[in-house]
Design a protein around this nucleic acid. Structure first.
Lengths: 222, 222
DNA sequence: TGAACAGCTTGACGGTAATCAAACCTGGAG
DNA sequence: CTCCAGGTTTGATTACCGTCAAGCTGTTCA
C-alpha cells in the first residue's frame, strides 16, 4: 500500500525536491529521539516513511502531543530558522526514514537560488495558518467536535472524503495519542467514540465506520 | 506614558526599519476594518500606535478573537506570504497609526537585499513558535490558568515583572475581549477574577493589584 | 436631571469533561 | 499455556464552564 502525501502538510517536492535529493537518507527505529526540547535547533527533518510526534513535557510530567507527522511532511523548520532551540521534543513513533537538513545547507541553498525564497516564505505562511486553524479549533470547538475534526483529517489522509455518505477508514494513531493531539484524556476519547455510536458511527479495532460523513462535518463546523 | 515595544512581538526595527521607513503612515479611527476574512492577502501591516484585533466569525455569529496587537507589532505577514487570502478579519480596536506594506514592495526588497532573508525567516520562525506556545496553553491549561498567563503577559506589556512580590497594572483590554482571547465567556471572566480574590488578587476598574505575582506564575506554570 | 445604553456582575441550572479507580481485553514473552 | 504489561473500557464522583436571565453601575446624551 503506497502512502499518499497529504496535500496540506506536503513538502512540495517541486520546491524542496532539488534540495533534499542531494541529502543522505537516515533510517531510525521506533522510539528514537530525533531532537529534544531545549536542544539547539540547527537542522530540520523531512519525513519519507514512518511517523513522528512532537511533544512537550508538561510540569506534571504528562506529555503533550503538539503535532504528528507522516510521510511527506517536514518538521523543525521554524525552530531551525528562528535560530533558537527546539521548543518541543521529536520522537519517531514508528520506524521511520527521513532526511536531515542542516541549517548551513539550507542557507547556502537560499543564497544560491534566491528565486526560491518567495516559495519558501509561502510554505512557512501556509504552515503558520494551519497552526492558526488549530488554535481556533481549540478555542471554539468542544472536545467532541475536535474529535470529529480530527477524524475528518485522518480520513483524508487515507483517501478522498466525500461531502456526505458512508465512509470507513483506519485510525492512523492509537487512541491515547489521538487524545494527546486533541487535548482529551484517553478515557474521554473512548467515551466520545461511544457517544458517536448514537450518530451512526462505529469504532472498533482501529477501524472507523460512519454511516454518513456529514455527521463529522456538521460537528466540526466544516 | 510611552508604550514599550513588546520584545516577543516586536518588529525588530533593525530588520524592517529600513523597509518601513520609506512607506507612508496611515491613520485610522477605532472600528476600521483593515482587511476581512477571505479577502486576497496582498499586504501586511506594521502597527505604530493603537490596537488591532484579528478575529474570525464563527458559524454561530460570535466573534473569535485570535490575536490582539499593540504598538510595535506586525500582522498579516504570514497570510501575505502564503499567497492566499486572509484567514481572519483585522479591525482597529482603538484609533491607530500604521504602515501598510504591499507584497510587491516586500518581494522587491528581498530581491535587492538577499542578506536580509535569513533574518526575515528567523522572524517568522519566532512568530510560529509563539503560536505553538499559545496552542500548548489551550491544550494543557485550564481557563483560569490561561487567564493568569494572560495577566502575566498584560503586566509585562506595561513594565518589567518581578519573579515574586506585589504588582499592580492596568488591563490593556476590556474584560469581554480578554474573554475572547483566552476562550472564556465574559461571565466567566468575571467569575475567574472573583475567584482570584481568594488568592490575593483584586481587580476593579481595569486595575489589577496582586499581593504576589508568584500566584500567577504558579497557576500559569511559568 | 433623567433616560438610555453598554459593560460588568450575579444567580441558577444543566451538561460535560476531569479525575480516581478498577476491570477488561489483547498481544507478546517465557 | 500462562503470565504479564500496555492499552482500552467502564463506573462513580466532582468540579467546572456554558448558557439563559436578571440586576447593577457608570457614562453619554437629550
Amino acid at each position: 500500500m503506497s502512502r499518499r502525501v497529504s496535500p496540506a502538510e506536503g513538502f512540495h517536492l517541486d520546491l524542496l525536491g532539488p534540495l533534499i535529493s542531494e541529502q543522505p537518507v537516515t533510517d531510525v527505529p521506533a522510539g528514537t529521539l530525533l531532537f529534544t526540547q531545549g536542544e539547539e535547533a540547527d537542522r530540520f527533518f523531512v519525513l519519507l516513511e514512518g511517523r513522528v510526534k512532537l511533544y512537550t513535557a508538561s510540569p506534571s510530567g504528562a506529555e503533550n502531543i503538539m503535532q504528528v507527522f507522516g510521510p511527506g511532511d517536514f518538521f523543525g523548520l521554524p525552530a531551525m530558522l528562528s535560530l533558537k532551540s527546539y521548543p518541543v521534543t521529536g520522537e519517531a513513533v514508528a520506524a521511520s526514514r527521513l532526511i536531515v537538513m542542516h541549517r548551513a545547507v539550507v542557507l547556502e541553498w537560499l543564497r544560491a537560488t534566491p528565486d526560491q525564497v518567495p516559495h519558501l516564505l509561502a510554505l512557512l505562511g501556509r504552515r503558520y495558518e494551519r497552526m492558526l486553524d488549530s488554535l481556533a479549533a481549540f478555542k471554539v470547538l468542544s472536545p467532541r467536535a475536535r474529535l470529529c475534526r480530527y477524524l475528518l483529517e485522518a480520513a483524508a489522509e487515507s483517501g478522498p472524503v466525500p461531502d456526505a455518505g458512508p465512509l470507513s477508514f483506519a485510525l492512523p494513531l492509537p487512541a491515547h495519542m489521538i487524545g494527546g493531539r486533541i487535548g482529551l484524556a484517553p478515557e474521554n476519547v473512548s467515551r466520545a467514540f461511544r457517544w458517536l455510536g448514537s450518530h451512526g458511527v462505529s469504532v472498533s479495532r482501529g477501524m472507523v465506520k460512519a454511516a454518513d460523513v456529514a455527521v463529522f462535518r456538521q460537528m466540526a463546523g466544516r
